[in-house]
Amino acid sequence: MINVHAGLPEFEYVKPGTMAEASRFLVDHVGEARLFTGGTDTFVRMRDGFWKEKYLVDVKHLQGMRTIRFDPEKGLTLGAAVNMNEVIASAEVNAHYPLLAEAAQTVASYQLRNRATIAGNICNASPAGDTLGACLVYNASLYVHGVDGLRDELLRTFFCGPGKTVLHVGDIVTELNFPIPPQGARGKYIKLGRNVISDLAIVGITVLGFPDADVPSGFRYRIALASVAPTPLVVEAAGGLLEEKAASAETIEAAAQLVMEACSPIDDVRGSARYRKLMVRNLTRRALTQVASDLAASGEAH
């Protein structure tokens, strides 16, 4: 770290004309080329000297990369280069996927969010990524352009470790797709940082709850955690418990306990494992309580 570069180290800027050209370039320069969208992770890592690519490949301008589309049947499509402020400002996102906007709103600062993208947040695969939980509980998938053609990747199976994903050389995420969320869903993202806002997450708790007549309690919950495991963590067990039993102070406490037990945080400069576990419990409790109460309120309203 003491040798961080004063500015960005030398590299070539590449702006391909097509996706195919971009993929090809990445394949032809394995280990030497990197894609970027907002660059907010890329430039930092390049300056730190952790990444030493000779080529940075800009794909923001390619077709579809900057569009937000909503289809009442299929759901939401976010071009990979749509920045976070555009997501936060989108009427469709706010109407149907408010949790996505809520999570994006907690990232860094306004000016950084004019560059940072959700696709970059995902592809960077930091367990602290703030928007990953919302994408996970909305069952997002990624549309990937690779050298062998196009494919979908489910986000649930996308992360392999810190900074590691299932993407291969030459793969470019072009879109994020979100299916229509369950009817009546309510969500909450609680981020605990050192500062009031703007810090990275010591822990981040995402909860999405929605009515489901097929389960005994009448409600289902999806819970995802940031910064407490090598990858963003989806805790199924707690949701199971709340499907069985109606949300009450006791069941929520039991669910929060299960969530705490499911995570395996480490000690780092941002927080100790001990504190993180306790915060996972307390803030899961807080988030579940909020979502359960919102669900109850909206049930009454109908």
């Binding site: 770290m1 003491i2 050192r194 500062n195 806002i197 703007s198 810090d199 990275l200 400069v269 941002r270």
Partner: peptide
Amino acid sequence: LQNPSFVDYRIATSAD
């Protein structure tokens, strides 16, 4: 030094 940048050397912001 384990926190040689603003990432982990936090100072008060307008919100704090």
